[in-house]
Amino acid sequence: MKSRLLQLNNSSWLVSALGEQALLIKPQGDKASLQLIHKSCSVIGESSIPGVVDIIPAYESIAIIYDRVLNDLESEIEMLSKAFRNISAENYSPQKHVIPVCYELGPDWEEVENHTGMKRDRIIQIHLAGANTVAMMGFLPGFLYLSGLNEEIACPRKQEPRSQIPAGSIGIGGKQTGVYSLESPGGWQIIGRTPLSFFDVRKDPPTDVRAGDQVVFERILEKEFFTLKDGGA
């Protein structure tokens, strides 16, 4: 199936097959804004498209996953167009999440201080003042990629990733903040931990956070971290 154009949320999108059971759509023209991506995800989610089981936003595209093998691209686009016709993004309303962070539990402060040329307290002050948006979720379930990091404290990922990073770790990777929902390997510069969990397979849906949501960080002390974590926060 070759690429075709689709009208969505007052914009033109290039549609192409992503395997047999998925479509990839990308805005045409200038570089896609995260706001356009997230509003358009909201429209897709409200459209009740037959067979759609997941909608996955990235920085510049959206993947639409189906539970069936897709037909020819023209008929699939026609179905999408009909579904989008009466749906508006005006009701799009991202949630706000307050994430407590214990910065004393960050093991990479020496590297971050050396790279930025700033003291820890100043870096924390800048990090707390950031306006963060959940740009997307990946590379493991519930991992939050947050845009909005002040470039003054941007840091490259570690040259040698760790084999084990605790769940709840807060890290800097380039111009992003990342939140590790689960214990995993990783190469971000870890500057703190949160006692909150952002993925629970027993819940439906397993996470309350969506791409496009806003995040504010709130500083807590180490004692508060363990009190909240032991309390099942």
Score class of each variant (00 low, 15 high):
residue 203 K to Y: 03
residue 104 E to G: 03
residue 165 I to K: 07
residue 217 F to C: 05
residue 78 E to A: 11
residue 6 L to F: 09
residue 29 G to Q: 14
residue 121 D to W: 02
residue 7 Q to T: 06
residue 168 G to Y: 03
residue 95 Q to W: 01
residue 118 M to T: 06
residue 121 D to E: 15
residue 213 D to Q: 04
residue 164 Q to P: 00
residue 119 K to F: 11
residue 149 L to E: 06
residue 170 I to E: 11
residue 191 I to E: 13
residue 79 M to H: 04
residue 233 A to T: 12
residue 146 L to T: 04
residue 184 S to M: 02
residue 149 L to F: 01
residue 209 V to G: 06
residue 184 S to Y: 00
residue 153 I to V: 15
residue 52 V to G: 04
residue 17 A to L: 09
residue 78 E to S: 10
residue 179 V to A: 06
residue 200 D to S: 04
residue 17 A to Y: 10
residue 5 L to V: 06
residue 77 I to S: 06
residue 47 S to D: 07
residue 65 I to E: 15
residue 82 K to E: 06
residue 76 E to F: 00
residue 10 N to M: 07
residue 85 R to F: 03
residue 158 K to A: 12
residue 51 G to R: 09
residue 217 F to E: 11
residue 183 E to M: 02
residue 70 L to R: 01
residue 1 M to E: 13
residue 27 P to Y: 12
residue 225 F to K: 10
residue 52 V to C: 05
residue 179 V to H: 08
residue 116 T to S: 14
residue 140 L to V: 07
residue 88 S to R: 01
residue 132 N to S: 12
residue 188 W to Q: 04
residue 120 R to N: 12
residue 112 V to R: 03
residue 104 E to T: 04
residue 167 A to C: 05
residue 151 E to C: 01
residue 1 M to P: 13
residue 171 G to C: 01
residue 195 P to R: 05
residue 37 I to G: 12
residue 218 E to P: 00
residue 153 I to K: 08
residue 144 L to D: 12
residue 220 I to K: 10
residue 181 S to L: 03
residue 109 W to Y: 10
residue 39 K to V: 03
residue 29 G to A: 12
residue 59 Y to T: 02
residue 188 W to C: 02
